[in-house]
Design a protein around this nucleic acid. Sequence first.
DNA 1: CCCGCGCGTCAAGAATGCGTAAAGCGCCCC
DNA 2: GGGGCGCTTTACGCATTCTTGACGCGCGGG
Lengths: 233, 233
Amino acid sequence: MTAGPLVLLVEDEVPLRRFLRTTLGAHGFRLVEASSVAEAELALGAQSPELILLDLGLPDGDGVDLTRRIREWSAVPILVLSARGREDHKVEALDAGADDYLTKPFGVEELLARLRVALRHASASRAPDAAVLELDGLRIDVARRRVTLRGAEVHLTPIEYRLLTTLAKHLGRVVTQQQLLTEVWGHAHAHHTHYLRVYMAALRRKIEDDPARPKLLRTEQGVGYRLRDPREG
Amino acid sequence: MTAGPLVLLVEDEVPLRRFLRTTLGAHGFRLVEASSVAEAELALGAQSPELILLDLGLPDGDGVDLTRRIREWSAVPILVLSARGREDHKVEALDAGADDYLTKPFGVEELLARLRVALRHASASRAPDAAVLELDGLRIDVARRRVTLRGAEVHLTPIEYRLLTTLAKHLGRVVTQQQLLTEVWGHAHAHHTHYLRVYMAALRRKIEDDPARPKLLRTEQGVGYRLRDPREG
DNA sequence: CCCGCGCGTCAAGAATGCGTAAAGCGCCCC
DNA sequence: GGGGCGCTTTACGCATTCTTGACGCGCGGG
């Protein structure tokens, strides 16, 4: 008996949780349970599940927001369960970073199959995203959402932070404007290239010694931007 | 103007295909269409789509089998569309290697959102391809979009870069002027052969020791150009 | 021998893209 | 309800890049 994947189940309705517990358990999954957003975040801090089964409509907060927050630092598969079948809800959750969306009531076999798909993806794309990145004097601590420059904390707005971490994720490589826009602002803003200029300027003011002659945040004219890896040229 | 992802649409019903064509087209996707399993396999041989939209219930074969065959050699995301909502069908398709399963009728926005999820997965799991080409002192790092000459970075404009990489793609072989023009400038400029001379000159100035006597960027009179492979003639 | 053609070179103007400042607006917290 | 903060939007100047036209050279055919 090998221990199956660890699943975080976030669900407030007791009967459904009970049901899923036995069903998933019977199929070899190990379970951590949470019945609210707060508990879920706690559990995420303590364990690192290989998959999250997330019910929307929790008592203490929005599951979509939780999804977004998780996506800032983790790529763990998130399967959303919801009583709401409305299309815009689905789109919102999926765009927030969820990997699948099941409308209640759903069949157990389908749930299991979609779970397998999600785990397949996860094992295929296991990318070692470093929790802390240090270049020159700049330090990006993704786990703590902290950026420091030669020890001093740099305050970044949410967008600035996401812009920086998106670039960091592709350290040394060019990230196209489209990519940045969709990853930071969402696909709906993929053509607002001006945002990039405004926020790049802001970021450079905060982390570059000479914002007019950037060492880290390099422009690739007509293509995108790149966070330069100081280890190479 | 960036060209969107290439999608292979496998669907035999003409009205639905028509509808998806316009819808996806309007959202920036490029489309290849097939109306049967045979056509789909043909198209897969000719092109390499970034995503497959596959209707089950094709006239000449089983879509699930097709999925399995594709999975033997490719990880391209497959979204299944089906009129059949039965759970065992879904499980079968998903376990065969499909990444998602939508039951008709489905909403366009949901389809687009799930498409985005699939593409997100694909780009996340794309292996860091070490596509580096080195000839003499010239180094072309496609992943980083960087060109260096004996260690020193060479700055290329977007067109120069595309011209060089297009030639590199056919290393050692002649690339006709038509081919270069359509691949770099697009179909509409296939007759502006003068562009080639201007940009070849610029490229040679940047990467040749003696631009007047080019070692790498050879002219093939009346035909096109060739990036010489120093390992051979 | 001269002309036409293809290629290479140069340079100027047009078009595009980028950086910067600053103002308006909504939101939340005090 | 006022102030601070962050996001969006507008305006403008500057830099880079693209396009276009002019010209010279060499070669081969008429």
